[in-house]
């Protein structure tokens, strides 16, 4: 990654996300979400002590162990402030508009307008690749005030012109098509990848390069993206994790080094 100080991809991504999370916001973390969880707990340690997050599957609120565990893991219960049964959470997860300020998701494919696919690559009846499925992604992308996508790979297989299956609506076909589909205001805010940080251009709602990660060239970002990125002027470099951010992450959020091991 070439950042100073040196850090793993998973740590770099968690720090980029954490910076954008606000104090007092409400968030939901899904299953298999190490980077997402690290981002929330890092934000809580640094600038957002009142950030509230809940584990989608397990219902634990603000579990804080100093090390990363699966969000479904019952070990999270003993350090959580609350523990809510899933049936009690369904109304605000699956129904309520803007209960959550944000969700952070991952995907098999993300497209030009920030739509997410974790279902199939290819045709649904005879897929080239069968993914795990939708779970809560539909509700989180449709109903949160905003969402983020974190990708640990950035290539033409992951960033495609149009997703093969929309399981999480972004800006759909761009422009005002999200609103036309009857969805509440929202949509993707940032996509963070090993190559850079991306947002969406006003009006077209097409993915736009916001900053390039250290050591990454514009040509490389263009070559590894399956559609034309919006680029305005010379993109600035992404600010790498500071010493304080990285030390806090390693000492108080991910003491077991899960991010370094899983996402080197």
């Amino acid at each position: 990654m070439g950042a100073e100080p040196a850090c793993a991809t998973g740590e770099f991504l968690a720090v980029q996300l954490a910076r954008d999370l606000g104090d007092g916001e409400r968030a939901i973390i899904g299953t298999n979400s190490d980077i997402q969880l690290a981002a929330c707990n890092l934000a809580r340690r640094l600038h957002a002590p009142n950030l509230w997050w809940v584990s989608g599957p397990g219902g634990m609120a603000n579990p804080d162990r100093g090390r990363l565990l699966s969000t479904a893991d019952p070990e999270n219960i003993e350090t959580a402030e609350a523990w809510i049964d899933l049936p009690d959470m369904i109304d605000f997860i699956d129904w309520q508009v803007h209960f959550f300020d944000f969700a952070i998701l991952s995907a098999l494919q993300v497209d030009r307008f920030g739509n997410i696919n974790t279902v199939v690559v290819g045709d649904h009846a005879r897929p080239k690749l069968r993914g795990p499925g939708t779970v809560g992604i539909s509700a989180l992308t449709a109903l949160s005030k905003r969402f983020y996508v974190v990708l640990t790979r950035h290539d033409r297989g992951a960033l495609v012109p149009k997703v093969d299956f929309v399981c999480g609506p972004g800006f759909l076909d761009g422009g005002d098509s999200r609103e036309q589909a009857g969805l509440p205001p929202g949509g993707p805010k940032l996509i963070v990848t090993p190559l850079g940080v991306f947002d969406f251009a006003p009006g077209s709602r097409a993915m736009r390069l916001r900053s390039l990660n250290p050591g990454v060239t514009l040509e490389q970002a263009r070559d590894q993206t399956g559609f034309d990125l919006v680029v305005e002027g010379a993109p600035p470099p992404t600010t790498p994790p500071t010493a304080i951010e990285l030390a806090t992450l390693r000492d108080r959020v991910d003491a077991g080094g899960v991010l370094r091991r899983k996402f080197p």
Binding site: V119, G136, L183
Partner: peptide, 29 residues
């Protein structure tokens, strides 16, 4: 193919002996 809201809604419809349960249209495929 289902999502969390569809699964929860389908279970609730069965639990409540309803012919169907409404869920929000989330603009998916």
């Amino acid at each position: 193919e289902m999502d969390g809201p569809g699964y929860a809604g389908g279970l609730r419809a069965a639990i409540c002996d309803l012919p169907w349960m409404p869920i929000p249209d989330l603009a998916t495929d």
